[in-house]
Structure formats: structure tokens, C-alpha cells
């Protein structure tokens, strides 16, 4: 694809407008909005973690509206079956009265899929999403169906209620580009939320972009140059999560059980490119790497018992790692 200067400049403007439009409906959570947008542009799925009522579902709905994307929401429950997500073959009668099987598409066939409380479903149903998230296809019987593009899963999970939940397997966690922690709003933000949601005031959202422009942007973003020292820094950070590697930081050796997979490096590089463009730059900086390292890594390495006992969090370890790994 031939990229020209105008396309790049337009893209930067569109992204800024999308951010501003979402800001109308989502009060506060600027970082979460930005990180979700980065995921959309980088083409990755997002796992949103936070207590109920923080506007996770609202965010996804707003995103779908502003981006003019098809949206479906799946509420995950323990009795949810894979077919409820993917769809199933049903017997239908044609005009001539003959019966035949026809594939009835499930809610996963949308551009934006909100997998609400994903950890409440059984592993069987959770794993049904694996193919959709990674390959962006659905296979039922012997037929593989391609999901609409762009395709993005935004899953939410509640970190408090662990009763009757099925923690996501590591393989599935690795398929999320970002894991975002949605924090409780500040006083002013909460006040603004009340003003919007408890009155008749309605927020009118404009469609700023569509699915096709997202796909074009993804291609442009992949062209954003990244200097060798910056790329090497990202790789050193990922390698720094591996306790078995010689020269690993002390924190890693002490608290990490398994390090991040190569997908983490892919996620950091791709997401940092998107972030650079959103910042109005044509190159990736160390700051971009540091910014995306938190959401890219926090679900990709696993802490050991010592970390849990000492109250060490993944974010604290990532922060330490980013400081310890030299940028030159």
C-alpha cells in the first residue's frame, strides 16, 4: 500500500477526534480510553479488569458507536455454551420444503465483541474464543468462517468476586494485547458521571471513523519506524521478565515464576507504534515503550508465591524492570 503524507496526517487528526468524541461519554479514564484506542489501532484484544460499575461496558459501546462498528455483547455465565458464543448449525426448511443445516452465526460475529465477565464461563466456553481471538476465524464442524474485519474482543473480569469463577488459562491471557486495570474515578469525575447518568441529559456521539479506515490505519502504523536502540530496549525488557536468563534483575529472579512470551515483545512494539502516532510522532520513543509495557506485560508473566506473600504486584515489578534495563 502506498502511504502518503496526507494519509498519515489525516490519521493523526482522526485519532485525536475519536479520543475527543469518546471523552464526551466516558468521564475520566483518559488513560484507559487511550490504551483501548491503541489496541484498536494495533489490532489486539483487550482484557479490562475492574470492579462493577466503572463504565467498562459503556466504554466499549461508545467505542463501537464512534467507530461505526458492529457491536455485540456476551454475558459470560457458567452455563454459557461455546455454541452460544460461536453459533451453531440449525435445521432450516427452504422454499421447496427441504430441510437442511444452516449455520446460525453467534454473537462473536461482530466487529467489537464485549465478553462481559469472561471468567465466569467454563474453560470450555472460554477456549471457544481462543480461535476467534488469535486467528479471527470460527470453525464449526468442518467449516471455518472468517470473522468480520476489524475484529476485536474486549473482555471484562471482576477481580473481587472469585467465587464460582474460572480463571483464564495462560494461553488465553497471552492472546490479549493489553490487560487494563480500570480504576475508580476521582471525585470530580464521579460528579460528572452523576450529572450525565442521573439526568435526562443525553450525549450525542458522532461517527468519526469506520472499520475500513481502521484497517488502513493499522497498515500505516506498522510502517512507523522504530530505531534499533529503542527496539532493543523493548526486547531487553521482555527478556528481563525471565528469571532463568543470566543477568536477570534481582526482582525477576525473586518474584517471577514464568516470564513473558515472544507475543509480549510483538505487543509492545506494535502498540508503541500506535502510541507514537497518537502522540503525533512518526517514530517510536523509549517513552512509548515504557507506556505500553505495563498493559502489555502485566498479564503475561506469572508471580511466584514469594511475590504474593510479599504483596509484590506485577505493575511494581514492571516499573522496576523499566528502570533497571538500560536504554543505551
Amino acid at each position: 500500500m502506498e502511504i502518503n503524507e496526507k494519509q498519515i496526517r489525516d490519521m493523526i487528526d482522526i485519532i485525536k477526534n475519536v479520543e475527543a468524541e469518546i471523552g464526551k461519554a466516558i468521564i475520566g479514564q483518559k488513560d484507559i480510553v487511550r490504551q483501548v484506542l491503541i489496541s484498536v489501532l494495533a489490532g489486539g484484544n483487550v482484557l479490562l479488569e475492574g470492579v462493577p460499575g466503572l463504565g467498562k461496558t459503556q466504554l466499549v459501546k461508545t467505542l463501537a458507536k464512534v467507530m461505526d462498528l458492529s457491536f455485540s455483547r456476551i454475558q459470560f455465565t457458567p452455563d454459557l455454551m461455546p455454541a452460544d458464543v460461536m453459533g451453531t448449525n440449525i435445521i432450516v426448511k427452504d422454499d421447496s420444503g427441504n430441510s437442511r443445516f444452516e449455520f446460525q452465526k453467534g454473537p462473536v460475529f461482530a466487529n467489537l465483541v464485549l465478553a462481559d465477565e469472561i471468567n465466569r464461563a467454563t474453560p470450555k466456553t472460554q477456549s471457544a474464543l481462543l480461535e476467534a481471538m488469535q486467528e479471527q476465524t470460527v470453525t464449526v464442524g468442518k467449516v471455518t468462517y472468517r470473522l468480520p474485519q476489524p475484529f476485536l474482543v474486549l473482555a471484562t473480569q471482576n477481580p473481587i468476586e472469585m467465587e464460582g469463577t474460572y480463571p483464564l488459562p495462560e494461553a488465553q491471557m497471552d492472546r490479549f494485547l493489553f490487560k487494563l486495570s480500570v480504576l475508580f474515578p476521582s471525585f470530580d469525575e464521579l460528579k460528572d458521571i452523576m450529572d450525565i447518568t442521573t439526568t435526562n441529559r443525553e450525549v450525542e456521539l458522532n461517527k468519526i471513523m469506520d472499520g475500513e479506515s481502521i484497517l488502513k490505519m493499522r497498515k500505516i502504523i506498522r510502517e512507523v519506524p522504530i530505531a534499533k536502540p529503542v527496539q532493543e530496549y523493548a526486547l531487553r525488557v521482555v527478556l528481563g521478565t525471565h528469571p532463568e536468563i543470566e543477568g536477570a534483575p534481582e526482582g525477576t529472579k525473586k518474584y517471577i515464576r514464568f516470564g513473558a512470551s515472544p507475543r509480549a515483545a510483538q505487543a509492545i512494539i506494535t502498540a508503541s507504534r500506535a502510541r507514537a502516532v497518537m502522540e503525533g510522532r512518526y517514530n517510536v520513543s523509549f517513552e512509548d515503550i515504557k507506556y505500553v509495557a505495563y498493559p502489555s506485560l502485566r498479564h503475561r508473566f506469572f508471580l511466584n508465591f514469594d511475590a504474593v506473600a510479599d504483596g509484590v504486584t506485577t505493575d511494581a515489578l514492571i516499573g522496576q524492570l523499566l528502570e533497571e534495563v538500560s536504554v543505551y
Binding site: 502511504i3 498519515i8 519506524p225 522504530i226 534499533k228 529503542v230 517514530n283 520513543s285 523509549f286
Partner: peptide
């Protein structure tokens, strides 16, 4: 913000984004 080092690596490249 690493503009210079990236530009240095892009010396000779004439792609739109490099320019």
C-alpha cells in the same frame, strides 16, 4: 524523543513516513 536516532537510521530512505 528518539527522533534523531530514528532519523539517522532512516538516512537514505525516501518512504513517505521516513521523509
Amino acid at each position: 524523543q528518539e527522533r534523531t536516532v530514528t532519523a539517522l537510521e532512516l538516512i537514505g530512505s525516501q518512504s513517505a513516513i521516513a521523509v
